[in-house]
Design a protein around this nucleic acid. Structure first.
Lengths: 119, 119
DNA sequence: CCGTATCCGATCCGATACTG
DNA sequence: CAGTATCGGATCGGATACGG
């Protein structure tokens, strides 16, 4: 990842913060508090270890998440949202609604749970 | 663009709606109402005609913007946000704030205007 | 003014195998 | 359990030229 890139606008910066297929989903999965690596891994359908690690590293770099590592064996790590991560979550929750609106509108609701939500 | 993709979660869908370097910026530029193609083109630093057209087409496909074409010469077109586009704008405004927060925090404020905003 | 077409390097991301 | 390394196809996005 290129650090200290010359950004010409805040939204360009935020694009780097959350770009890619997985970052918004990862942030959303952390909405209820801390998760271990494998909790995230098993709760996000289709993601690979490589992608999860990579995206977690980038999210941490931009200060949206942080992690706490515990010594001992087996290794234990907890990922959690920072203050800015929570702020991003509030934007992502709006996006989730927009996604659901679209799916309802276009009859793609078969994947939603009984509350009309998934992930 | 692949239509009727099989989405497994709303955020994956929304990722397609706004992915790429330019879409959030385009939506933000439409925050004050309708714009012609060239107004958008000249107000977004660094974008090419190709990218602008391509991204406008995709935003329209997902129903975040719409356009109105007037006959006559020279050609006149107006792009504007739909209801869902306005909803997306509310999320994008939060992201803008996050971007500005980050820039202030990391002393990258030289590009911000006197109100601390750009674009 | 508005929209299209092509070329090509950079990046994304899935598959897979491996380490502490 | 947590993290790393490599390969290769797909997609993204900038440059450039052209057409209605």
């Amino acid at each position: 990842m290129k650090l200290r890139k010359n950004y010409t606008c805040p939204l360009e910066l935020v694009h780097d913060m959350i770009k890619g297929k997985w970052k918004t989903i990862i942030i959303f999965q952390l909405r209820n508090g801390k998760c271990s690596f494998s909790e995230l891994y098993h709760s996000i359908a289709g993601i690979t270890q490589k992608m999860l690690l990579e995206q977690l590293r980038e999210l941490k770099h931009f200060g949206l998440i942080d992690k706490k590592t515990y010594d001992g064996y087996p290794l234990k790590v907890e990922y959690f949202l920072t203050g800015q991560g929570e702020k991003m979550l509030s934007a992502i929750k709006i996006m989730q609604e927009i996604g659901i609106d679209y799916m309802v509108e276009h009859c793609m609701t078969e994947i939603l749970d009984e509350k009309g939500i998934c992930y």
